[in-house]
C-alpha cells in the first residue's frame, strides 16, 4: 500500500489543479523557502481527516482555501484528493485503488468523498484505523517533533511514548473513572447526612 497520487485544487497556495504522482521508495520535494512545499504535506494531512487547524498552520479551517493574490481572485472551495494503491488489500475495502477527497467551502461546509461517493468523516477514519495512517500516527515527522524529543520538558517526551503505546485512551478512561468516583463520594456524603437526620427522628 502506498500513496500514488495527490490532487490539489484551491488548497492554500495551490490555486491551479495540481497533480503529484508518488512512487514507492523515496520522493523528494524541493524548492526555495515560502513556495509551498509544506503545503503539500498539509494537503495530505488534511485529506486524511486532520481536524486541528493549528496542525495545518492556519487559525480557521476556512483559511485553507486559496485566498487570492494581487493578480487572482480568491476561490470558493478547496479540494484535495488522495489516491492510495491498495493492491495488497491492507485497507478494508474491495477496491484496489482508493481515492479519498475532502472539500471545504467558504461557508464552512465540508464534504468527504470515498471513491467519489459522499461519505462521513467517520467512514474515512474507520478506513484508516489500525493501518497506522490515522492522524495520530507517526506518518508525518517534522522538525518540530525533533525539538519535542530534545526539549527539557520530560512531559512532552513522555507524550510521544504514550502516543506510541496507545495508552491515551486508558488515561482518558482513568480520568472518567476518577470523576465518577468523585461523584459517588459526593453522593455518599449526602446520603450519610440524610441518614443521620432520619436516624435521629426515628430513635426519638
Amino acid at each position: 500500500m502506498y500513496l500514488s497520487k495527490l490532487e490539489i485544487l484551491g488548497f492554500k497556495s495551490f490555486a491551479q489543479r495540481t497533480q503529484v504522482h508518488f512512487n514507492q521508495g523515496v520522493t523528494s520535494i524541493v524548492g526555495p523557502n515560502g513556495c509551498g512545499k509544506t503545503n503539500i504535506v498539509d494537503a495530505i494531512r488534511w485529506a486524511l481527516g486532520e481536524q486541528r487547524s493549528s496542525a495545518l498552520r492556519s487559525d480557521k479551517m476556512e483559511n485553507v482555501i486559496f485566498n487570492g493574490t494581487s493578480g487572482r481572485k480568491p476561490m470558493g472551495m478547496a479540494e484535495v484528493s488522495l489516491t492510495i494503491e491498495n493492491s495488497k488489500g491492507i485497507l478494508p475495502t474491495e477496491y484496489s485503488e482508493v481515492t479519498i477527497s475532502r472539500r471545504i467551502f467558504r461557508s464552512g461546509e465540508s464534504e468527504y468523498l470515498l471513491n467519489k461517493n459522499i461519505c462521513r468523516l467517520k467512514d474515512i477514519t474507520n478506513l484508516f484505523m489500525d493501518t497506522g495512517m490515522g492522524t495520530n500516527a507517526y506518518s508525518v515527522i517534522e522538525l518540530k517533533m525533533v525539538e519535542t524529543i530534545l526539549s527539557n520538558k520530560a512531559d512532552e517526551r513522555r507524550n510521544m511514548f504514550e502516543e506510541a503505546a496507545g495508552v491515551n485512551k486508558y488515561k482518558l478512561r482513568r480520568r472518567l473513572a476518577l470523576r465518577k468516583l468523585d461523584e459517588v463520594k459526593a453522593d455518599l456524603t449526602r446520603v450519610n447526612d440524610i441518614v443521620t437526620e432520619v436516624e435521629r427522628s426515628v430513635s426519638s
Binding site: T38, V41, T131, G132, M133, A137, I141, E142, L143
Partner: peptide, 11 residues
C-alpha cells in the same frame, strides 16, 4: 507503529 508511508518535513 509503522504506517505504509512516512512524510519527513525538513528534519
Amino acid at each position: 507503529k509503522p504506517s505504509p508511508f512516512c512524510i519527513l518535513d525538513e528534519i
